[in-house]
Design a protein around this nucleic acid. Sequence first.
DNA 1: AACACGGGCAACCGCACCTAC
DNA 2: TGTAGGTGCGGTTGCCCGTGT
Length: 240
Amino acid sequence: MRKPCCDKRDTNKGAWSKQEDEKLIDYIRNHGEGSWRSLPKAAGGLLRCAKSCRLRWINYLQPNIKRGNFAEDEEDLIVKLHALLGNRWSLIAGRLPGRTDNEIKNYWNSHLRRKLINMGIDPNNHHVSQSLSLHRPQISGSATLSGGPVNHERKKWQQYLISMTDNDRVSDTGSCLPSKKGAASCLEDNAYVLPDLNLDLTMSIPSPSTTFAEWKQESAELEAPSELGNATNQTLLLFR
DNA sequence: AACACGGGCAACCGCACCTAC
DNA sequence: TGTAGGTGCGGTTGCCCGTGT
């Protein structure tokens, strides 16, 4: 049985106070990140769990964190990345400088998910819902999307839908849907699903004739340093 | 004005992965 | 090779605040 990461009797829970934040910031400024387990004691006796310190630093105290509303292009990117990666928030966050996985996850759950649902898109697999899929243009007739300012939004999402072929989306079987697999194995999965990702995240359709064996061979070849120059591998590197 | 309700967000929890021994 | 500690990640919870009734 694993020991708990800290003795819960001796730790505070809940919102962080200004003093606690300052202690943590001071310590990390002087000693750098890492050694989270020993940090609370070393940082002037912070009564916080190591994991809590890490989370607080990564999500709120780091100097390069971007706070506030998400820009339109950030939204687009999140949706596209989510279609590719599923709930791999840390990977998605890696593509959005200054944004944290927690922030993106919250934004997805509170805003983007609902937005997609209103558009008639299943946020889990990015498929157009049954009732709309037969006539994609109907999306513009979604009940929540009438009125002027929405037109732009509507157009944007229509383009998104059109640009997303079925091959682009995370498979229904959930090859990269929530599981406790590591990022690396997830990327392997995606490399199979999306062998031809482009750097700008607009996608080309993978050859339907590619078998798994062929893909494995291609992947092995891509591992070779001499292949680093080609576009496909650049794309794969994007997700490393 | 008081209450109920829902949304947004910070933080917690537990599991999985990584690495050193 | 197996094990334990440290860390990272994603799901979930709970509090706070705004809005509607």
